[in-house]
Design a protein around this nucleic acid. Structure first.
Lengths: 368, 368
DNA sequence: ACCCACAGCACAATCGATTGGGTTAACCTG
DNA sequence: CAGGTTAACCCAATCGATTGTGCTGTGGGT
């Protein structure tokens, strides 16, 4: 009877106060009449048994009370003692870039599954900010970094290596460092094969930023494959640009001015640049999918939803993010890891299909 | 001479080891022959003076060495002692939603300026996940929460209040809780005024999710204003939907089926739904901007870049994020705060301008 | 000359969890 | 039954920073 009453009291306390009062190891220990270290050991060893630390009965009592009181260990304290924070830092050019946002979703998911939490910061692809944000994350004592904005010629990665900071790259690769990326060279090849087989012979590339491996590799994959197929690409048909719509618009203008004969197909290494290109073409009276083909890259959710659906190379962005976390985990465990390149798939739509309209591939959802 | 040599040594050590060896307060204290507590007090009181804690000379020596050694306090230790982590939790439906991604950029910036770091998690608008993610953040001992996915009828907010968790809402509001949002009612009114003055009399609304204040308020603002202007909106002309392109497509189908006479204008409470609507209209042979006007909401970067540029209500997403942080800061300081509604602006483009084409308003940039 | 105030520090407890090393008593073994 | 083993715990140091309190010497006031 008394037991029952006590039990109810305990529950009510729990209901009304949980969260506002944080319960510590010591609290549990005191209530059970054991030492905090005992509680710690019990709560630590997996459920499998008290492994010499405590009797089964005690372990049971401890675990029950911990559950009832809603105990959750203080990460600050744990981190202080163990030296590991279970925090990962993620640096991206900008989260408002759909591509990185989705990779980050994958990162966050996979990290949570491993018991890690993640910080994200935007570097805007600015080297100074990259350093600053990196320092901020290290000041937070993250266990490791996932870098999504690596520049091909940056000294930052070397510095991090010297400082023995565990990190992996995601999205963009840099030779000599572990990364999880799309197989961008293959992606470029897929586009070359597609356009060649559609009968195009005069093409141009909106190549993106020179410092990004995504841009360089996709362009190289395309150009090399094109030449392998017997095609020609004059220097003026490869235009480096920004990744956004404005960049695509501008590059398209340059191409239309400099290339003769006018290309019958454009490959933009990024969907947004492709959208900008479509706008530029339209405003010059060229009908995309009729006068000129356009292919983008990443197959972001918009590609399939545009009035003229955009052909695009679909890259497994979510998996790339997840893979990056798994790589980093292994680095943290002291393993040596190799880079991973995930396979892309070409989605052909009206913007580059002369004859037939393929079923639109649906994109992800929004939620405002 | 000796001093010079020692100095050089110190610098070299600093250069080669900084980061890989973490320097603590005790290290600094030992090297200077003072007590750690003294170092702490000096490094704490703003540069203005050692306020009774140490002599100006000592303060100078301490600060110099701290800089030279690259000292940065361990947040785990500080957090443990002070009980405050300088961590903020941010919960959004999904970061791959451009709207939330940009708000989060504002949040991150403003938080960093105040010395806070932020976690983000995606709840996918799923109540169960909302609770889980909230608990995860609290287990991390965040100082406060910024909630971007609040549901109008959710009990979660009440629970958080009971548990005395400091939080503010962003993006969506719920009566009784402090929030930073766009003035969505006003946004809806702007659209009503615009379409009315363009001569439309038969309109329909793609209203979004019932649980989101953004959807409810924008719809209410539009409908109320429309009626105030003398217009009529039959029940079947307001269709609740998902926020994504598929939702917009589906809702458009419903509208075209059920509404007679066929509306000459559609207001979608979200750009993505508007894009879906445009697709649905096009596939039925209706020309947007000619046969039927479409207006979206948020003015995401795509609106201005679409082949038929989309009229949209521009909401100050970055500022909304920044405002949320400032609100939360004040809540953390124990102040009582009121909700803030930021003013939106209507951007009229071809999709709803019968006569003239306005200059396209450029959108933000991408960086892949 | 005496006392007080105050500048300038040092000491030690504390936050919550972890962990290497005891300690006790029961139990087993030869 | 002595000696050893082991199960089941307890103790105390430790991680790095913060903070209330205590101590010492010097200078000024009367």
């Amino acid at each position: 009877m008394m037991q029952f009453l006590e039990c109810r009291q305990g529950n009510e306390l729990n209901e009304s106060l949980s969260g506002s009062v944080t319960v510590t190891l010591k609290d549990l220990a005191k209530e059970l009449g054991v030492h905090p270290s005992t509680v710690s050991r019990i709560l630590h060893s997996g459920t499998e048994g008290a492994r010499g630390a405590a009797s089964v009965a005690t372990a049971e009592r401890v675990r029950d009370l911990a559950r009832k009181r809603g105990y959750s260990p203080d990460p600050q304290a744990t981190g202080l003692r163990t030296g590991r924070t279970h925090l990962l830092g993620v640096i991206v050019p900008r989260l408002s870039d759909l591509v990185l946002a989705i990779m980050y979703e994958g990162i966050e998911e996979a990290a949570a599954e491993l018991g890690y939490s993640t910080f994200v910061m935007n570097s805007r692809d600015n080297p100074e900010e990259q350093r600053r944000k990196t320092d901020t994350m290290l000041a937070r004592r993250v266990d490791g970094l996932i870098i999504g904005d690596a520049h091909l010629n940056s000294g930052l990665l070397r510095d991090l290596t010297v400082r023995k900071v565990p990190f992996v790259l995601v999205n963009r690769s840099v030779p000599g460092y572990p990364s999880a990326t799309c197989d961008d060279v293959l992606g470029g090849q897929l586009v070359a094969d597609h356009l060649w087989s559609e009968g195009h012979r005069d093409v141009a590339v909106i190549a993106g930023e020179r410092y990004a491996s995504t841009a360089v590799d996709r362009t190289a994959g395309f150009v090399d494959r094109w030449r392998f197929l017997g095609g020609q690409i004059p220097p003026e048909a490869v235009v480096w640009s920004h990744f956004d719509t404005a960049g695509g618009r501008e590059a398209t203008g340059t191409i239309l001015t400099n290339c003769t004969p006018r290309p019958t197909a454009l490959f933009a290494v990024n969907d947004f640049a492709a959208i900008g290109a479509m706008g530029a073409l339209r405003s010059r009276g060229l009908s995309v999918g009729h006068h000129i083909a356009v292919v983008g890259f990443n197959d972001t959710s918009l590609a399939s939803e545009l009035p003229i659906p955009l052909s695009s190379v679909r890259s497994p962005m979510l998996d790339i993010g997840r893979t990056a976390v798994q790589l980093l985990k292994r680095v943290l465990d002291g393993e040596h890891v190799e880079s991973v390149k995930l396979k892309p798939v070409l989605c052909v739509r009206e913007s580059s299909a002369w004859t037939e309209t393929l079923a639109a591939v649906p994109g992800p959802s929004e939620s405002d």
